[in-house]
Nucleic acid binder design. Structure first.
Lengths: 130, 130, 130, 130
DNA sequence: GTGGTCTAGACCACA
DNA sequence: GTGGTCTAGACCACG
């Protein structure tokens, strides 16, 4: 996963978003464990505290559950929530883009063209490496 | 303009984005003045210093030029830059959305549907009131 | 005279400096009048209030004296002060440059070379047009 | 470093100039951190926000790079820029002095003498205390 | 009235 | 501890 440290959106949110999407996509299924705090921190070259905050966030949402000494497990009923939040995030991104396009005076055609371009670019595989 | 204080993207950037888009859309033309620091601050219910930061950014980009005692003026050749940056921002939003959709396991059809929904929602007029 | 509106040094000071130097150089001699407030403002494309502040500054220094309805006159004993202040300003500029050069790790040779270049560039005539 | 609050050049610019020169001189090398916002603010008896503005400017110039929670780091390729800007500033100071000298009617000999005096005065060590 | 700088002090994100 | 954003309110330069 690409972490953008310069982005205004906090790193811990980027991590949480990523896990949430992975759960929504079925990369991690209910009962699976997600990568350990330290493993994740090493992989992303990020402070463990930052990963911790992301995991806390997901636990609060009920997507994962910690079992001391065993790791973080994807819950049975958290998948629906993860899916809902992920779709909402996608919708929010598109809505934001559409509004910005309109505010900038872009024609509907150009806006649609930008979307098509985004779909091609989006083919870049962002799957997690387990 | 709607300012979202809870957004991870700083308020001053939201303001700068807004003005940039307005310039790109031709709401403010070269030679025009944009709303004064204090007027903008009052309208957005934000501290004047925050507006100032936004205006500084735009001045650095060459979109506007300050004249002490007179106001901030849209430059002749800053419009192209404003346009370019605005379009890039739109593209970035769509690309981000598309990537997130793919990462969440959304089908191309659902992704496209989300975009269409965004276009309808985007019709909300976000023009500035001068 | 070239006025730099973007400079951090206030416009009124730039004007005062210029007049002071002109007096020091003998362009305006004791008993002469300097250009009227409005003439100066028109020539420099500056607000009359700004010129006024410059003239006030010079009057406070004793370089000029206003005679109502007649204009601003260079005083007999103000010339020495104008000269002293102008020389001090020159000295200050060089000292500032020398310190900056040293702080930037420039060699004495390079520093001297920069000065020589400045002398060549300085030949640009900056005399007032009466 | 001496901060002159009465100078027409803003304090934050004085700070940025100082750091830029230090980087140009090799006091801070690529990969080094410069003093923290708060440390600098304490040392200069200045508000942290003021230091921040200076650091922002340097980051925009590419001289330093911020890492949240870690500090501000001198970049690999920002040193050249810092050097170039610093030399340009020295040149500007000398040119300004030379022009002022000429406008004040100083002889080339006196001008040169003023420069020599500046060089002696400039020996004052303005290195930062880390 | 305009923009520009500075301070004091708050809260947040990150290590 | 680090940097980053925001507020409230001050003073200055300019028109």
């Amino acid at each position: 996963m690409p972490i953008d440290a310069t982005s205004p959106v906090p790193v811990f949110m980027q991590i949480a978003d990523h896990i949430r999407r992975s759960v929504a996509a079925g990369v991690y299924k209910p009962g699976d464990t997600i990568p350990s705090l330290r493993a994740m921190a090493l992989e992303l070259v990020v402070n463990p505290n930052t990963v911790q905050r992301a995991y806390e966030e997901l636990e609060r949402e009920g997507v994962i559950q910690s079992r001391r000494g065993l790791g973080m497990f994807v819950t049975q009923d958290g998948v629906a929530g993860a899916r809902a939040r992920s779709l909402a995030a996608v919708q929010a991104a598109f809505t934001h883009g559409a509004r910005a396009a309109r505010a900038a005076g872009m024609s509907p055609e150009d806006t649609r063209a930008a979307f098509e371009r985004a779909c091609s670019d989006g083919q870049i595989d962002t799957r997690v490496q387990p």
